[in-house]
Amino acid sequence: MRGLLLVVLLLGATLAALLLGQVSMPFSMLWEGLTTGQGPGAMVIGNIRGPRVLTGLGAGAVLGLSGALFQTVLRNPLAAPDVMGFTSGAGLAIIAAIAFGFSAPMPLVAAAGGAVAALLVAGLSWRPGHATPPLTLILVGLGIGFLCSAFSTFLMTLLPHAEAVEAQRWLTGSLAARNWTHAAQVWGLGLVLVIAALAQVRVLSALELGEELAAGLGIGVERVRWTLAATGVLLAAAGVAVAGPVPFVALMSGPLGQRITGARSLAGRLLSAAGAGALVLVLADLAARGAVPGLQLPAGVTTGILGAPYLLWRLSREMERGGL
């Protein structure tokens, strides 16, 4: 049961994230705070680290699951919502909402932005009478991502200085100053979407065997693809809405989760990816806020520094295998 290993790692990471930081506290203080609900431990957990860690776990899990879904549907380890511009689209939508004073729930705004980006990627890659190769989707997605970032930068220049600093921190992907509402939001949405994703495991595993076989089993391949893609986009948007477009969590989580648990079944791999995503984001956040004394860096800085070399390594692996 190597799945247990992932659970243990997650528990350890959660504990470390609660105890360590700019100000570390001994375990006894945490224990006292948890059991009696009083003292400095309870204060730190209740107001600062508790919601932050819980939000990080939830956001990492939905991002990781989203990445694994796209990687499975498109059968390419490079296909992830952060590579294909969906998270940039969600981020752009939120910056636009801030800049134009448009008040709507953030998950809704992020989902709309991610969905528009995804539709653009799909629409622009589509050519009548041709199958769309996954690599075209990735390439067009990169372009959409570039454009969304350019627009985000453009909108940022419209904001007054203080808001621009905040928007900048946000665009990097950060878990700073999260409250219980954020945690509840991502966990509530996440649970619904995880169930939605797991409900599609059967058709997805048929799809994995090959399109013709799946069609032979009476599965409407196109419809299933769209439902899965929609689930993936919503999952990514749920994560972006509370944590910002943290780079590369979705890309790394699928392979990392499988490395840890060694899961073979599709459901197992998806759940491993979710667990690995939570692990990566919480640890990245811990490293970011502990790295420099007196200053909390946003988590996106660490995932970017970790994820970019991973992407490069992955590229050379794919190259050797002739996948590119």
Partner: peptide, 19 residues
């Protein structure tokens, strides 16, 4: 794809460091 992705990865890495 590979060259463009490598560029995107390099950009992301430097962006994180600059941030």
């Amino acid at each position: 794809v590979r060259l463009t992705l490598a560029g995107a990865a390099l950009n992301a890495l430097l962006l994180s460091l600059v941030t």
